[in-house]
Amino acid sequence: MASTVKVWDSPVRLFHWSLAGSVALCWLTADELQSLHEVAGYAAAGLIGLRLALGMAGTRYARFSQFIRSPKRTLHYAGEVLRHKEPRYLGHNPLGAAMVVLLLSMVGGVALTGWMQTTDAYWGVEWVEETHEVLAQLLLGAIALHVAGVIHASLRHSENLSLAMITGRKRAPASGDVL
């Protein structure tokens, strides 16, 4: 069995799966169970706050400074992916990092507009409701892209990234891998 290294710590993994569960629960309860929908939305908002803290002061691979790349570097990496010449990253690759930022922003926007609908100032305001619904639908598309990216990277680099987000471990780095 190939040696492995710890990449994702428990708080990152707990955040990831808790956010996935909260978003799924929000989606499932959107039209029927409003109180559960709101609780799940507040949980998602709190989880975004936790991830922002981990991104600033967490362990090495949790920190935004470790994995967020410039737009130029991200586009270069996308070209490498299209040519099937992308290196394996031990942490997030540049496209994965862009997806992290997108998903955090989108869940934050959905949570914000959901909360706004519970306030006296914005209750019943059409643009707030419509923005909430549009962001939620766009979030589903982003989640589908995220899952497709995980599957693609898993196949390209012969490692199960979903399992790594459960165990926290990935295959030890090899020559040419980006640490």
Rank of each mutant, 00 (worst) to 15 (best):
V150Y: 03
V178M: 10
S3M: 15
L95I: 15
F67S: 03
W27L: 14
T118M: 13
H152C: 08
W127D: 09
L14I: 14
I68K: 05
G149T: 08
G49H: 02
V100C: 02
L52R: 04
T167K: 10
K170E: 02
Q137T: 13
T4G: 04
R169C: 06
D177R: 11
K72I: 12
P11E: 05
A62D: 05
R169Q: 13
L103G: 00
A45Q: 04
R69S: 10
G141I: 12
W115P: 01
L36F: 05
G114K: 07
H76K: 15
I48F: 01
K170Q: 03
E32P: 00
Q66A: 11
V125R: 12
L138E: 07
S35E: 12
V128P: 01
H146C: 06
P173E: 01
H76E: 14
Y89P: 04
R88E: 04
E38D: 13
S3C: 08
S175D: 13
G96D: 02
I68M: 13
L82H: 02
G79P: 02
M116C: 08
T167Q: 06
A24K: 05
R156I: 11
Y89T: 01
G49E: 04
V125S: 03
L104V: 09
K72T: 11
G124K: 08
V147Q: 04
W127N: 09
T59N: 14
L104D: 01
R69V: 07
S35P: 01
V150S: 05
Y61G: 00
T118G: 07
V101G: 00
V150C: 03
T29Q: 06
V101L: 15
A97V: 12
Y42K: 14
V150F: 01
F64G: 00
M99P: 01
H76N: 11
M99E: 05
V150P: 03
A174I: 03
